[in-house]
Amino acid sequence: MADVDNKALFEFLVRMGDNTLILGHRVSEWCGHSPILEEDIALANTALDLLGQTKMWLDYAGKVQGEGKSADDLAFLRDAWDLRNVLLVELPNGDFGQTLMRQFLFDAYHSIILGHLLKSSDDEVRAIAQKASKEVAYHLERSADTVVGLGDGTPESHRRMQAALDYLWPYVGEMFETDDIDRAMASAGVAPEPSGLRADYDALVGRVLADATLTIPEGKFAHKGGRNGYMHTEHLGHLLCEMQWLQRAYPGCEW
């Protein structure tokens, strides 16, 4: 493996781990409230997979950081400006359609990047990708099917899915932004440059959304600021208030 700057590697790892942490949290908010019992089970299953992946990414991030921090320390004791997830995953659940559209838009990206990480020069990254990519292939299959089913369902379900896509689409671009950290990862062979994944993404997403009879919005504008921590949405702070409350209120406990 080529020499890797540990700081950049850490940033890359928390980007991966924070995406799954925050999305896993959002999905878990559905517990007991979904449209049908089978969906309660499926959503819990997705959240579980994502949290398992979070543990692997953040454990490794803590090791690379070298300050003796555990995955839990990183998940529960960083404030919003230190989180590195893309904005897309922190957006509120909205209705079931918005949740599944967000899931699909992320799953498509996630499956593509994990496919590349199977060839990472970093052994641990490769091992995590091996486990995660199988889970994510299933997430993608399920979210794509649901997007198609609801997009090409009743007039109401179509309208709701188009509204979800219109709302979420401006958050897609951030996943393919490439900065110095990404370039460092690419030159060390750890991870691909995100910008290079866009064509595959557009092909995949375009196919599914066409089957769903939905129209991709024309605007090219992309909200940014999550994966570099510069400017998250207002939603993230509230999510952290809830997620981190016990650890913050009763520091130093074992749970």
Binding site: P35, I36, G153, T154, S157
Partner: peptide, 13 residues
């Protein structure tokens, strides 16, 4: 709240 989802998926099927 889930009625439109169940109806949508049935209509698609």
């Amino acid at each position: 709240d889930g009625e439109w989802v169940r109806d949508g998926l049935m209509a698609h099927a």
